[in-house]
Design a protein around this nucleic acid. Structure first.
Lengths: 203, 203
DNA sequence: TTTACATTTGACCAATTGGTTAAACTATTT
DNA sequence: AAATAGTTTAACCAATTGGTCAAATGTAAA
């Protein structure tokens, strides 16, 4: 029954994703994943031959999701300011639905540096940059953006969006102690971060 | 010989720190640590009874180092702007010397959430905040800082400093491809981040 | 119904790993 | 120098873990 088969594979993949996200490659146990999927451990190996195979499948999908979110900024025909607002809105919303993603990714990329080249190979950063430059040449002059500060700006934007999820444990712990609500903080951050960046780059 | 003994313990601790920082608790092997220290594996257990003991010793020290760096900002009798510049200068310099620290900390805090309460218990964030408020009451009005935006601002500052080290693998990979130098980027970041924040909060 | 094929399972295996132990070694005390 | 106490080692153990395999079960075609 091909339908059952697909259901099983999907269930395995879902369970593996959940366990790997929570425990990482080293911490995850095949038995855990099997239990979580309600199947026998041997069945895992039947569908995905080894732990590495299974992990790679999960990692590939997750990494793809994460980086895809950076791209659509380019497609739109909006102003730079609109793009920045759009990015924080979309990216933080995405991370709200997948809060464990950043820690997982960073950690696994750190554990296995070879993955990075593979990841980077897929996105042509030079083309991305030249597109941006073409679209916003006048705006870059209007704002405080030069070819030299581009990496600083890009990483700052990424940092403001991703960091709260990486340090979620610490931040939410501190906030609880001060009477703030972490979810409200995240919601407010979509606007705050955008304002923050725009203000910072305005001449 | 008490001198030899201390040397051995120190060697073990150093080796453990290095291995744990690189591989994390799950990935680290007692045998690795022993080899790295040039001693027998049983000797590890003689000095630190279990892997957990050893790991906790390492973690405690590392976490302490990291968070201490946030405190001295308060002692100085400088203006808010000077404090911000001072923080980025010192914090990024510290992370340049200990680049693996952020990923390690975040990952282990994520793996074992109970640690967080223990960590947070030690720093009285409310007192910290009220001190800051007292010291810079007029400046907060001059800038765009309110009680509500404080968490946003604090996390943004932390993000701008820490994120490059968390995402170092990705960032340096991308930069290499674009002809930028990661170390130069870090050096420039000390000033860029400070300017960025100050510009952003200026009314 | 029988044949053929894929799917699922329980039992098992070999390797790894944290941890133990008894003996050997070293240094200090008497 | 002999006894005592702390330090280091090699060999070993029990538990965990990724992975295998032959048998059992289900399913669709002949």
């Amino acid at each position: 029954m091909s339908e059952n088969e697909r259901q099983t594979e999907e269930k395995i993949f879902e369970s593996a994703t959940e366990v790997f996200l929570k425990k990482g490659m080293d911490g995850a146990r095949m038995q855990d994943i099997a239990n979580h999927a309600g199947i026998n451990k041997a069945l895992l190996h039947y569908y995905y031959r080894t732990k590495d195979h299974l992990f790679n499948a999960v990692f590939e999908k997750i990494a793809g999701q994460m980086f895809k979110k950076f791209a659509p900024v380019l497609d739109e025909n909006h102003s730079l300011e609109e793009k920045i607002r759009f990015f924080f809105q979309e990216h933080i919303s995405f991370l709200q639905r997948n809060p464990r993603l950043p820690v997982f990714l960073i950690n696994e990329l750190n554990r296995n540096p070879e993955r990075i080249k593979k990841l980077i190979k897929n996105l042509d950063i030079n083309k991305l940059w030249s597109t941006l430059e073409k679209q916003h040449k006048e705006e870059f002059v209007k704002y405080n953006i030069t070819k030299e500060t581009i990496p600083q700006l890009m990483t700052s934007i990424a940092a403001l969006s991703v960091f709260p999820f990486m340090a979620k444990a610490v931040i939410s712990g501190l906030m609880e102690k001060m009477g703030y609500d972490f979810n409200a903080y995240l919601e407010a951050r979509k606007k705050f971060a955008a304002d923050f960046v725009i203000k910072a780059i305005t001449k």
